[in-house]
């Protein structure tokens, strides 16, 4: 039952659901992000990113994904978007800039897509559905 619950999310394209597995994987990464809600921690992080990241017992791969600001990689390594957003906030980015960076679109292209009604649900429901289309 529990396994089925988590399995069913895997057929949704371009989406990682923050379930128990992801949460176990990403606990320290997310708690690092959480620390950035304090102004003094944002400053300490910006002053020396790697030293600050080493205070949290995450994997080197997770640290590197933060240094690279690779949000998709951070998501795959257990990050949750609401926690990861605090890195973007620290960098002075808007949520739209962060979202665009995950989609392969430029900010202008992403903004235009949103103005035109957003990403269509057509072809975006199921990975298997997309495979069949091809």
């Amino acid at each position: 039952m529990t396994t089925d619950y988590n399995e069913q999310f895997k057929d949704i394209p371009g989406t990682i659901v923050f379930d128990a597995n992801q949460s176990r994987l990403g606990y320290h990464l997310n708690m690092f992000c959480m620390s950035l809600i304090k102004a003094e921690n944002r400053k300490a992080f910006k002053d020396d990113e790697l030293s600050y990241l080493k205070k949290y017992p995450m994997t080197n791969e997770q640290r590197q994904s933060v240094l690279d600001r690779d949000l998709n990689r951070m998501l795959a390594l257990g990050g949750n978007i609401y926690f990861l957003a605090k890195i973007g906030a620290c960098d002075g980015l808007s949520f739209q800039q962060m979202a665009a960076s995950m989609t392969g679109l430029t900010l202008e292209e992403y903004k235009q897509m949103m103005l035109e009604g957003g990403r269509s649900i057509q072809g975006n429901r199921k990975i298997t559905e997309n495979t069949n289309d091809k």
Partner: peptide, 17 residues
């Protein structure tokens, strides 16, 4: 209402839903 903030599918909107 409909929105997705993460991953390559970010920006999804479903007015019909």
């Amino acid at each position: 209402m409909s929105h997705q903030l993460q991953g390559p599918r970010a920006g999804l909107i479903n007015k019909e839903f």
